[in-house]
């Protein structure tokens, strides 16, 4: 974790993300598990004790992450709090909101109800993995074009659900779109825009396919 520096006005030298990170993990993470895996080799993560940690290899957005996890860690927790992949949101932690939706072997699932140990060996895709370099994916582009969000908190989950829908059903009916995002709540109530974004994304992909 990057060290905070404080200037004369008391501003920290942390980026917003790493500041949020340090605040968010501070309470949850006990001293022994503060290291992010990328830095694990240098700083030394707490070694497995009494079989409590399990060594896993997670394939996330085409990258391989070898790490030790506690069996109780959900994939959502590992993505955000261990790997710093912050697109996947932490909403209800009980499969009731959809903010944490990811693709596992191309199929949408709630990462809050998936143990990281169970996701080992699968291809995991988050919103970060739908980007093509710095270029937005078709679904993300469509969400912008159709103004399909207000606060944006549910958006990564919505985007992943639409991605899952379009992979399975490239030209969905309106009813299929409604069903496709029925596992993602939007408390701002941007649903009609989200439905239009899904339709727009289907068009963009059709053009893309030629």
């Amino acid at each position: 974790m990057e060290k905070p520096t404080i200037d004369s006005q008391g501003h920290t030298g942390l980026s917003r993300r790493s500041f949020v990170n340090s605040v968010a993990t501070g309470a949850a993470a006990e001293a022994a598990v503060l290291t992010l895996p990328g830095a694990a080799a240098q700083t030394g993560t707490k070694p497995p004790q009494d079989g409590e940690m399990v060594a896993v290899v997670l394939q996330i957005n085409g990258r391989t992450h070898s790490m030790n996890v506690e069996p109780r860690w959900t994939l959502q927790y590992v993505l955000r709090d261990r790997l710093g992949l912050m697109a996947t949101k932490d909403g209800c932690e009980r499969g009731e909101c959809g903010a944490c939706t990811v693709l596992i072997d191309g199929i949408s699932r709630y990462s809050c109800l998936t143990l990281a140990v169970e996701a080992a060996g699968c291809q995991i895709t988050t919103v970060e993995g739908l980007m093509n370099g710095e270029q937005l994916g078709t679904v993300q582009q469509a969400f912008i074009e159709e103004d399909a969000f207000q606060c944006g908190y549910c958006t990564p989950g919505q985007v992943v659900s639409v991605e899952a829908l379009l992979r399975k059903t490239p030209e969905p009916t309106f009813e299929q779109i409604r069903e496709g995002v029925s596992g993602n709540l939007c408390r701002c109530g941007a649903y009609n825009h989200i439905f239009r974004a899904a339709q727009r994304a289907a068009e963009l992909r059709k053009v893309g396919r030629g």
Binding site: G95, G98, I107, S108, T114, S161, A164, L165, G183
Partner: peptide, 9 residues
């Protein structure tokens, strides 16, 4: 049952 995600899982 529930939602696409929960039915997938």
């Amino acid at each position: 049952v529930a939602t696409p995600q929960l039915r997938n899982q």
